[in-house]
Design a protein around this nucleic acid. Structure first.
Lengths: 189, 189
DNA sequence: GATTCGATCGGAGGGATAGTTA
DNA sequence: TCTAACTATCCCTCCGATCGAA
């Protein structure tokens, strides 16, 4: 084990990509860096708990668990997008933009609390997701911002279908979907 | 700044990607994770989002859905076209053309055998309804014929909304609806 | 002159692709 | 310089109000 020092925003980015309670930094980083996972999630959890020695550590751990449980209770994290997708409605959309918004709305409804991580997804200079029309409009020209239905988030809409699929892929991945599910989501568009 | 603990092999992976003497972990990670080198998260903004998405909002949404189902159930208890109108689907159409076609489709489904009477409805020289695209196209220029969904009939589409309402009025009247119901149908557009 | 009807054309939306930047 | 990634212009399609024609 090594200790490294990183900026706060990087730290938050890593935390935002946690996929299971108690997942450690190495596991998250391996996934983000697309490296092979060394051990299964369960094992890493066991190791982490086993490693706890001092009373302080125990306290920290309890705090962490309490915090995460709370987050999980607020977030509908047992739900998956697929419960919120209405295929009829999707099929009825005239263009890719309509389907795009519907899929994002479903993702939001399935993960209202964690959805904010998508805010980190962006292009070279344009923002892809934001909390207001103005933010997106300001990040480029003719970005065509649209509100994600029934949510406080906005998305950029001026892109080709390939890029819209990419945005979906990135959003679903950030929200913890595995490759198979991400593929299913991407196919909806 | 935060300290995180990572596995030795991950540490080596990061070190191996150093691109300049003295480059720190954050810089290397940003590059590997394809993040902007200057990226930062506005934490106050994040808190604001979290506050907006309360469980109450979710409850409200559930209520709305329940209400809509009930309304739909009441509508379906009436006889005729109104049995075949899906308000959700109607509301979802982008323009008047979509609603126009949906209403006509409902009329057709309610009266498949008598529907052919609408064929007599026409303008000075353009046909308004016909059994083929060609007939409509031949009766004028840029008539923009569209097939009435799930039916063998076609309708002219190049007209203003006022005229589309008129066509509906005439069609419903021909099919025997009384003034009150005709008015309801016309209001759907 | 008043009214109805037709279809042109301006406007909005969508998204492929040419052009730009890192 | 060369390439890969990203941007946003611009073309296309759809819509329907408006205004000229009958």
């Amino acid at each position: 084990m090594k200790n490294i020092e990183i900026d706060d925003d990087l730290y938050l980015h890593i935390v935002a990509n946690t996929q299971s309670i108690g997942e450690n930094a190495s596991s998250i980083l391996r996934r983000l860096l697309k490296l092979d996972q060394k051990a299964s999630i369960d094992e890493s959890l066991v190791q982490e708990i086993t490693a706890v020695t001092s009373p302080d550590d125990i306290a920290d751990n309890v705090m962490d668990l309490a915090e995460k449980s709370e987050i999980e209770a607020l977030d509908n994290s047992t739900e998956s997008v697929f419960n919120f997708i209405n295929k009829e409605e999707l099929a009825m959309q005239r263009g890719a933009v309509g389907r795009f918004l519907l899929i994002l709305a479903a993702l939001y409804r399935a993960h209202p609390q964690r959805f904010k991580v998508v805010t980190e997804i962006c292009g070279r200079d344009r923002l892809y997701f934001a909390n207001s029309e103005a933010e997106l409009a300001a990040s480029g020209s003719s970005t065509k911002p649209k509100q994600i239905p029934e949510s406080p988030f906005w998305v950029l809409t001026n892109s080709n279908t390939t890029r819209k699929k990419m945005m979906l892929t990135r959003a679903a991945t950030s929200l913890g979907y595995n490759d198979a599910d991400v593929e299913k989501i991407r196919e909806l568009l």
